[in-house]
Write a protein that binds this DNA or RNA. Structure first.
Lengths: 216, 216
DNA sequence: ACCTGAACACCGTTCAAGT
DNA sequence: ACCTGAACACCGTTCAAGT
């Protein structure tokens, strides 16, 4: 049944959270759900398909709770453009980042495996709808969705996987490389507030989107 | 010697290009360079360290040829702000995308492994320098570097790994999900020119950067 | 229909041994 | 100093067999 499949994916996600993605094996997952390794195959197909299933499992976690895009406020007249898309964008982006923090190892799968699950298509459709209502020209809508989703996924992944690791200047000096611009920036490089940075990035991207909106 | 290490990394990259990252094993790499698997260890340390070495190998390929950032043109007076950063950004972004096309499998490592190699620091420093010369406030420079590099890496990775796969509407209809915004957009979703999209994205990001430039 | 267990062809890495 | 080969504890997956 579909219930057992979910149980298997939950076990795989738990192992990834606890011991990393490399620890997810057919054998370790099977042991956690109390089955033989081969008993997983009817439910997940293969190891690769299990990882694809994990992508669906992650995206499913994204949309729990209230809807992705808040409802249109009743007071918005035809003359003034709705600004709800801004809050919708922020909500989705912040949920994505929270998801990465909950499941750092498994989150990388969202960037490495093409996600054409119904869950993914639904999220994309909500963003399309928001951009259309915001007044972005239809021909730019899919591009802007990809631009923003690429940034949000990439930022969240980079943050939890250490790509943004602040490089210790002392350590760098010991290696003997001189980086003039790093020296110029100095202390600015050390004090990073990731929450504030993500907020600032979203503000800039909102401004970018607003600049594309055709008058009307 | 350092020469043999390079030879080992080249072999690993060749295997990744030909048969995917999963095909890169200590055994397969060793066989390609004509050594025993254990003979690799003094040069690369471990399998994980070998993959980190591959990140350095990839970034090294980025900066071959001319410099990352073109020279300052002689005619730029003190009154007018240099616009060279635009070309520098485009050059680096396009090289990154070309790198992803040359090494699709190995490219994912740039997003999953923290790269604190000298090669990476040098590239980042060049971008810092460009943004500073463009007039971006110092406090915003590292943030904008991360914003742009995250997008460029994410776009290139998504493109070569199929995350941007155009979903066939017929196939989606067969699955029985209805996506209103997808229906509204219609044909716009099918005709995608990735070169043009990347260009448009870079233009938008340049505009975003220009909007941050303080007058002077 | 659903599950098991042995087996096959692989892994990364340790260790004792060779030159 | 540099390399080898056997061995250990793992993999994903096939296959024949059980209930």
């Amino acid at each position: 049944m579909e219930d057992k499949r979910r149980q298997i994916l939950d076990a795989a996600l738990a192992i990834a959270d606890e011991d990393g993605l490399d620890a997810v094996s057919m054998r370790s997952v099977a042991a956690r759900v109390g089955m033989s390794p081969m008993a997983l195959y009817p439910y997940v197909g293969s190891k690769a398909a299990l990882l694809d299933g994990l992508v669906g499992r992650l995206l499913g976690e994204l949309s729990t709770g209230d809807a992705l895009r808040p409802m249109q406020p009743v007071g918005t007249g035809p003359g003034q453009r709705s600004q709800e898309w801004r809050e919708g964008l922020r909500t989705l982006a912040n949920r994505m980042r929270a998801l990465a923090r909950r499941h750092p190892s498994a989150f990388m799968l969202l960037l490495s495996r093409p996600s054409v699950t119904p869950e993914a298509a639904g999220a994309v459709d909500a963003v399309y709808q928001g951009l259309l209502e915001a007044g972005v020209p239809p021909k730019d809508v899919p591009r802007i969705e990809r631009l923003v989703s690429t940034f949000v996924l990439g930022f969240a992944a980079s943050e939890v996987n250490g790509r943004f690791a602040v490089d210790d200047p002392q350590l760098r000096a010991r290696r003997g490389v001189d980086l003039p611009a790093h020296k110029t920036l100095g202390a600015v490089l050390l004090e990073v507030d990731w929450d504030a940075e993500f907020e600032a990035d979203l503000r800039d991207l909102e401004q970018l989107i607003a600049s594309l909106v055709r008058p009307g």
